[in-house]
Design a protein around this nucleic acid. Sequence first.
DNA 1: ATAACATCTGAATATACTTTCAGATGTTAT
DNA 2: ATAACATCTGAAAGTATATTCAGATGTTAT
Lengths: 131, 131
Amino acid sequence: MNNHSSKAKASESVDAPGCDAHLVSLENVRQVQPELASVEKLQQMAEFFGTLADPSRLKLLSALAQQELCVCDLAAVAKMGESAVSHQLRVLRSQRLVKYRREGRKIYYSLADSHVMNLYAEVAAHLEEND
Amino acid sequence: MNNHSSKAKASESVDAPGCDAHLVSLENVRQVQPELASVEKLQQMAEFFGTLADPSRLKLLSALAQQELCVCDLAAVAKMGESAVSHQLRVLRSQRLVKYRREGRKIYYSLADSHVMNLYAEVAAHLEEND
DNA sequence: ATAACATCTGAATATACTTTCAGATGTTAT
DNA sequence: ATAACATCTGAAAGTATATTCAGATGTTAT
């Protein structure tokens, strides 16, 4: 969803720039840094979350959580243009959040697996809990 | 995270525009539409997911999952500028994903609750499963 | 084959986001 | 009080993203 290819010339090595790593920090850094998730994995997860980071796409998922629907029905339900729905379904497909089947000229979409709803529930819980 | 205030003049009512809702669809629409999550909730969830939709922020969370760290250590670990880290921590704070405590001039950040790691695990599972 | 329907695609525009830079605020030690 | 450190903040620049519009592709019925 984004990249920005980490132009941060900030601290190329392990020692910090502004904060002149007074030994105290160096230890933490050396402990934590190697355990970090890989850049590829972080990128992949960010893209996945990015797919869920849009009200329109969440609305489509929320509709599909109830039943299988074709593109034009999704557009009607979500009050979106059909082209916009099509574009967004492609994004959801790219992250395997939805699957589809053709029936005549219509294409019916549905949720790909249960992970989606688990996530939905987990996040809902987090958001309820506070505020 | 985004908004775009739904300028879709697409279908203001229940009937679809291009797809001339041949009764077949109307039924689906009337069933599904009222069960959709509210605009506010969708917006709130989208913002939450948006907070996780960035490799840098995920990297910071990944570091904090291991241990409490101050801003300058986080910058060193994540190889980011300290200003960028500060900006991103504010975003994470706004979604209550991290908490912090002051100790002298340093401010130590840590994960706010366990929901974060549950999410992480759930998404990791989803991403492993395919491809 | 032709017309009508359903979905998809590419380009353009407007908006949102991340980072950097410069400087402000708050904290500790001398 | 002053200097040095740690973090935060606002503005600017470059990049990414969502929607719309116009038209392309594929499907069904006549």
